[in-house]
């Protein structure tokens, strides 16, 4: 087949099946990303608050939240008076 530069993914798509795990993983990430971003739209939240709001285990919140910080969707807010928990907010 003709391989077009800039569209070589089509070539590989013919030859290789995308794993179900990769597809599911993407779906899951998009779902959680949307949930976190929606929750933060209403205001800054800490990990614990997010966890309660989304009914999601705290460690998972940390992981996804930090990923979203890394990808530039979320920014770190202020730390509380006890210097214990930061809040997180949507990055403008």
């Amino acid at each position: 087949m003709e391989i077009e530069k800039g569209k070589t993914f089509k070539y590989l798509k013919e030859k290789r099946e995308v794993s179900q795990q990769a597809k599911d993983g993407l779906k899951e990430f998009n779902r959680i990303k949307k949930a976190i971003l929606d929750a933060l739209k209403e205001g800054e939240l800490t990990v614990i608050q997010l966890s309660e709001k989304l009914n999601m285990p705290r460690p998972e919140v940390v992981y996804y939240l930090m990923s979203l910080v890394k990808y530039g969707f979320v920014a770190t807010g202020e730390v509380d008076d006890m210097d214990e928990y930061f809040t997180y907010k949507i990055k403008q």
Partner: peptide, 8 residues
């Protein structure tokens, strides 16, 4: 931070 809940 601790990975369990983001606490310092």
């Amino acid at each position: 931070l601790r990975p369990g809940d983001g606490k310092v």
